[in-house]
């Protein structure tokens, strides 16, 4: 299972009427491996990641690009969308909806965006678990298992997101992302707003969970330390994107969690 190609993105180009937001981005996600997308703020990392899920909402939008989920279908999901404007992009969004939240899940920049403040963590996990290919016998047990996997106590399922600390909320967001048992997980700067210790704990936890389930992880980050430590493959977005390997010290990949 490990090493299977789960997603390929080639020559992605998205533009507004004024300029190209991203041009020529290519990325491949493999099962059980981490593909990091690096670049400066505003370079189009998140945009590229959303495009990997078929979510495009820029006008005129997609100019070039090929997106494939080889484990599902060899066809190009961007077929017929190039230069066709918002209507075609909305069609693409509808067509790819069945993959999002199941085959591919997304963990946004801040946990506050990922968690619905009006519903308990347990309720949100139950919705995510409901998107699994095969339903578990007991949703309550499944919720407890997922919480345990990210290091949260069972009582967290009764909490509203506002009642959790920053680190717990980030863990809960991760739990929601892994609950549908996805093949690909896109983590959009999961360490935003966390202190250095917690940042490392969350990163290690994410890696551990992804490796355990054989999930292909697409990690968006502009933290070069994180990328050096975690990534198997690096995709640089933007002309002046930093090179994570341009350092004197060798990359200490995947240290154990503290």
């Amino acid at each position: 299972m490990s090493g299977e190609t789960l997603l390929t993105l080639d020559d992605l180009a998205i533009r507004t009427p004024d300029r190209f937001l991203v041009d020529g981005v290519a990325a491949t996600v493999f099962a059980g491996q981490v593909t990091a997308i690096v670049g400066h703020s505003g370079s189009g990392k998140s945009l590229s990641a959303r495009a990997c899920m078929g979510v495009l909402d820029v006008s005129p939008g997609l100019v070039r690009g090929v997106l494939r989920y080889p484990q599902i279908d060899q066809s190009n999901l961007f077929e017929g969308v190039h230069n066709q404007g918002m209507r075609a992009q909305r069609r693409l969004m509808r067509a790819t909806r069945k993959y999002r939240g199941g085959y591919v899940t997304y963990s946004p920049q801040s946990a506050s965006s990922a968690l619905n403040p009006g519903r308990t963590i347990g309720h949100q996990l139950a919705i995510a678990i409901g998107r699994r290919e095969s339903r578990p016998n007991s949703v309550i047990t499944a919720i407890r298992d997922v919480l345990a996997e990210v290091g949260l106590p069972p009582r967290a399922s009764a909490a509203l997101p506002g009642e959790l600390s920053g680190g717990m909320a980030q863990r809960a967001a991760l739990a929601i992302a892994i609950a549908p048992q996805p093949r690909i997980m896109i983590a959009d700067e999961p360490e935003t707003g966390l202190d250095p210790v917690l940042r490392r704990v969350v990163n290690e936890l994410m890696l551990k969970v992804a490796e355990y389930h054989g999930v292909g992880l697409m990690l968006i980050s502009h933290n070069m330390d994180t990328v050096r430590r975690c990534a198997d493959h690096v995709v640089r977005v933007g002309h002046d994107a930093p090179d994570p390997l341009a350092t004197d010290t060798p990359a200490p990949k995947r240290r154990e969690a503290p």
Binding site: R50, M53, V55, M93, R94, R97, K98, Y99, R100, G101, G102, T105, Y106, P108, Q109, S110, S112, S113, A114, N116, P117, A128, R131, I176, I186
Partner: peptide, 18 residues
Amino acid sequence: GRLGGARFVEALRAHGFS
């Protein structure tokens, strides 16, 4: 706005909701 406005919707869209 406290939900995150458009960002909240975007996150839900990424989860595959209509």
